[in-house]
């Protein structure tokens, strides 16, 4: 059965120069679409992709990735903001790689645009009152 799943991949720093995606494309019969890619200040890679293929090929590909040390989780994991906890300081604005956290210059309020968020989780530890949370 063919499936299509969106996943977020975290590449630790030591894997950044490895041809992992190349191997994935070559040895596993999965079609993929890179939706977002960015490198964090810690020099880790974050990649959001859509994977399409037969269930067994998809599973094989994911196993290859996790065995190589890449952290994989489905994009269905959402990052949400606890509105009561957020102080609108703006620390996260500089951290978010895709501009999902935006400072309104007039009100100095920080708005969270959920549709832009790729759930990379970078804002979570950066937020001093820990207002950003992963909901499973």
């Amino acid at each position: 059965m063919a499936i299509s799943i969106k996943v977020v991949l975290h590449f630790p720093r030591h894997l950044m120069n490895q041809p992992i995606i190349y191997h994935l494309a070559r040895h596993y019969d999965v079609e993929f679409n890179i939706l977002k890619a960015s490198i964090t200040p810690q020099e880790e890679g974050v990649l959001v992709m859509e994977l399409k293929g037969e269930q067994k090929d998809y599973e094989g590909g994911i196993k290859y990735l996790t065995d190589s040390g890449v952290e994989v989780h489905p994009l269905s994991r959402n990052v949400a903001r606890d509105e009561d906890k957020c102080t609108h300081c703006g620390v996260c604005v500089a951290v978010c790689p895709v501009g999902a956290l935006i400072l309104d210059p007039a009100t100095r309020r920080v708005d969270f645009c959920e549709s832009k968020c790729i759930a990379c989780e970078l804002c979570i530890k950066a937020c001093p009152p820990r207002a950003m949370k992963v909901c499973l």
Partner: peptide, 24 residues
């Protein structure tokens, strides 16, 4: 508050730790 400053001829993005919104 404009979001960037220039230091050593380089544009540097800024972020605040205190909340102006809450201060208002």
């Amino acid at each position: 508050k404009s979001g960037k400053i220039v230091l050593r001829e380089k544009e540097v993005p800024t972020a605040s730790l205190s909340s102006y919104y809450k201060a208002v």
